[in-house]
Design a protein around this nucleic acid. Structure first.
Lengths: 233, 233
DNA sequence: CGGAGATAAAAAGTCAGACTTATTCATCGC
DNA sequence: GCGATGAATAAGTCTGACTTTTTATCTCCG
């Protein structure tokens, strides 16, 4: 995905990170640095670097005379892109996609409203280009090409909002959209209504109509929630 | 705040992290591990562990033969609680509080709506308790006591939403509220209207009225935005 | 004069081993 | 029983040597 071989400690993390986030070691489990170093056939220094990274993600806690203890899931840095990727690759990928989709449903409408106020003309142009790309690939099983434009569309919206915290969710949205296309729902061509909504959002942003951009985006996210059967009874 | 002395590498991060997030080294700047180790009077192993942590936060990138280069702000893991604390302690604390408050304004109303559906009776009880605590300390310059209950209130809402991503924003909201009380606005007693809104949100959640809980919380966050002069003209 | 390839240097990466320190647990004495 | 003492343990730290990768330079030939 990112950089495959960025050092031995990274190699260790590639297998230890997914194991921990998959819940293979229940909270409170104790790992010993020496044993891990043996298992991965690396020196203690390398193992220590890997543990430091896991510690900075709040996945584990290292204490003298005790060892490296696994922290409960409720303390993990679940916004860390690396943690998100590890968890999406794991078993409860579905649960993960659901909570991330709910997050999207809160963020994206507000971001679209802000984008309508702050977007540059370049960003507006990008947006319509993306929307047109989505239209062009919305029929005939061109899901991959559609996905590329879909991801780009939402990235532009988040960037154009002018809010740094929103902008940094671009990767998360990309993961969610990719996950949706590749695994769960979407067996056939995308919902035509959703495609139309994207075009309309682009128009609203260009027109500077914040309320309309927000409301239309809310409809998009409602659709995403419904796809995952997340709805209010 | 958290754990002061968790090893030498932590001590190094306590000064190097804030320096980097404060922008003291422009993007592309190169640091050398050996020099840093000398500067902080620690061994290279300790320094390497610190660099690994900074790397996992995407603050720096370590490359052979080049050194440790500082990444542009746009690539930082700005959702990392540690990074948030470092930046809030820095110079552009104000800009930080603004972007985080916008984030709150997107998240909290949705979280409140979900809380109205998912909150347990214990959580409802906690909520009204917090709201009453806010009322009790809303007059007479008891800002600290008010803050404690305010933070607790919003934490319960985020937890009760049942969404993990929302729940993990409790610390962020706590930082924002604390920052607001201790530095920026709020020279006197809190706005009575805001206090009333919190009580009403607690009622709405208890009653299971999602739409009302969401709308009332939206009014709270609008107030927070106005305090920072973030408003649509 | 210019480009391709060899060469050298620089910095991170890795490893092994010795030592330090904090923490926990068990034992001993009251 | 209970508190103090001590021993065991695992992380923490340091040092020094070595390896590897990448970049810059330098040479040689077209």
């Amino acid at each position: 995905m990112t950089t495959p071989g960025r050092g031995l400690h990274g190699r260790v993390l590639d297998t230890l990170g997914p194991e921990i986030t998959a819940g293979e070691y229940p909270p409170g489990s104790v790992l010993r640095t020496d044993e891990l170093a043996q298992r991965f056939d690396v020196s203690r220094s390398v193992m220590r670097e890997a543990v430091r990274v896991l510690e900075s993600m709040h996945l584990v806690e290292s204490r003298r005379r005790v060892g490296v203890t696994v922290r409960p899931e409720s303390e993990w840095n679940v916004y860390d892109p690396q943690v998100i990727r590890w968890r999406l690759a794991g078993a409860d990928r579905a649960r993960q996609l659901r909570s991330l989709t709910v997050l999207r449903s809160a963020i994206e409408p507000v971001a679209a409203g802000l984008a309508a106020r702050h977007a540059t003309s370049e960003q507006c142009a990008e947006l319509t280009e993306c929307a047109l790309g989505m239209v062009a690939h919305s029929r005939g099983h061109k899901l991959e090409e559609y996905l590329v434009h879909d991801v780009a569309f939402h990235r532009v919206i988040l960037d154009a909002s002018g809010n740094e915290m929103f902008a940094r969710l671009g990767d998360v949205v990309a993961e969610v959209l990719a996950g949706r296309t590749h695994h769960d729902v979407m067996f056939e061509d995308p919902d035509p209504a959703a495609v139309t909504l994207h075009v309309q959002v682009a128009e609203a942003v260009r027109a500077g109509d914040a309320a309309r951009a927000e409301e239309l985006t809310r409809q998009i996210t409602v659709g995403a929630l419904q796809e995952l059967d997340i709805l209010a009874p």
